[in-house]
Design a protein around this nucleic acid. Structure first.
Lengths: 136, 136
DNA sequence: ATAGGTGCAAAAGCTTTGCATTCGT
DNA sequence: ACGAATGCAAAGCTTTTGCACCTAT
């Protein structure tokens, strides 16, 4: 546990919400101005590996590294196998209901919803397959 | 409707699935080797604006431009207001049930699930507010 | 004829990596 | 003392942008 990691952890506590890597960097730098961006990236990866922090996508659009779903007939969602990369698409009435309920409760208008689930498909569970990096 | 756009559209049809921008570029280039990456990016943005293509995030991790959720007590999901950027977090039993059902039906093991919904919060609906770009 | 799309090249971001140094234990 | 983490700088990649040219209508 180094001073930088402590500073980053405290920064995450203070910031709350859902900062991006460089929002964390900017804020952590105010505590300790020797902190380097690469340290922040490395620390965030480490925290994500340990599960202390969860990465998530909040931008509706304009985010990088996105995939494109051609000619989507209707809103649908995805299961991605982290072993072989296979994608299963599905529709879900439960999510439609959830959207309606949430919209009513919070008085919001919901324009889009994205659900992605990650895990192992049946075959990869049997094979013990696991992609190390960059699986698609 | 130019030749390049046609080539990109046909490429999307042929590829199917969920290609990234540069997978589209690589494939489109085989049809028409004058196609330039910037044309692909511009065309994909245009298609996304018109709704003919939907951007989605399929990478569980290592994706860029991600936000980090500090100290998540349990799996939860997000509603993001596209007007003011406000984020509402919520848990959902319906999603837990959906996960269990899906896992049973498809014989998969689900390790994570991310749902994000986008729309306008009550106040932004009243105000007619709308962020043009880079809202957070 | 005109509006809009394209190629090109350069710039802009964000993120990663190698290496020498420093730090925590 | 030792292994791990850090700072630094450079490289890597993806994506965007300005501009002149071209093309579909």
């Amino acid at each position: 546990m180094t001073a930088q990691r402590r500073a980053i952890l405290e920064t995450l506590q203070d910031l709350g919400g859902h900062p991006t890597a460089d929002q964390v960097y900017a804020a952590a730098r105010e505590r300790d101005d020797t902190i380097h961006p690469s340290t922040v990236y490395r620390t965030l990866s480490w925290l994500a590996d340990t599960g202390l922090v969860k990465p998530c996508h909040l931008e509706p659009r304009g985010d990088r590294c996105e995939h494109f779903d051609a000619a989507p007939p209707a809103e649908h969602h995805h299961f991605v196998c982290t072993g072989c990369g296979r994608v299963i698409e599905f529709r879900s009435e439960a999510i439609e209901e959830l959207k309606a309920l949430f919209a009513r409760q919070h008085r919001v208008r919901i324009e889009r919803a994205f659900l992605s689930m990650h895990g192992l498909c049946q075959q990869c569970q049997e094979d013990g397959t696991r992609i190390d990096a960059d699986g698609r």
